[in-house]
């Protein structure tokens, strides 16, 4: 017992191929969560242009938002934001059911369902999000 070997996290890096549905769901939920909280801060920062707009020129707000919306990059990022939000919502619903002890036996299938549904909703929304940008 004098010596032992700590492999640390070495095996974690090589293990992603072995991840099962529940693990992927967790990874994606964490990732989308980080994106969403990051976006919330940026969102409030951009909308802060409403503060000068309220007393002076409304164009500060209207202009900032509309010029951002004119950028193709912003439109594409918005589609990304939508997919992130939709996945977080749908997997969040799945997690709430898991918390209530409902359907634990089909947790993998509900994860795949939330992925497919996210894909479908995002694809269906692309025209609306992109319209006028190109």
């Amino acid at each position: 017992m004098s010596q032992s070997y700590d492999r640390g996290l070495v095996e974690d890096f090589g293990r992603w191929q072995e991840f099962s549905a529940g693990m992927w769901a967790w990874v994606l939920h964490k990732f989308t969560g980080w994106v969403l909280i990051g976006y919330l801060f940026t969102h409030i920062a951009v909308l802060s242009t409403a503060i000068p707009a309220a007393t002076g020129d409304p164009a500060v707000y209207t202009g900032t938002l509309q010029s951002l919306e004119e950028l193709t990059v912003v439109r594409i990022l918005e589609v990304g934001l939508l997919s992130v939000a939709v996945f977080h919502i749908l997997n969040g619903v799945r997690l709430l059911f898991v918390d209530l002890g409902v359907g634990l036996g089909s947790q993998d299938r509900s994860f795949y369902a939330s992925l497919v549904l996210t894909g479908a909703i995002v694809v269906a929304s692309v025209p609306t999000f992109i319209s006028g940008a190109f």
Binding site: A50, P58, T62, Q66, E70, E78, L82, T128
Partner: peptide
């Protein structure tokens, strides 16, 4: 994004 389009948002 659907009812009011994001690119049409104005302060008004």
């Amino acid at each position: 994004h659907f009812v009011n389009h994001a690119y049409e948002i104005t302060f008004m």
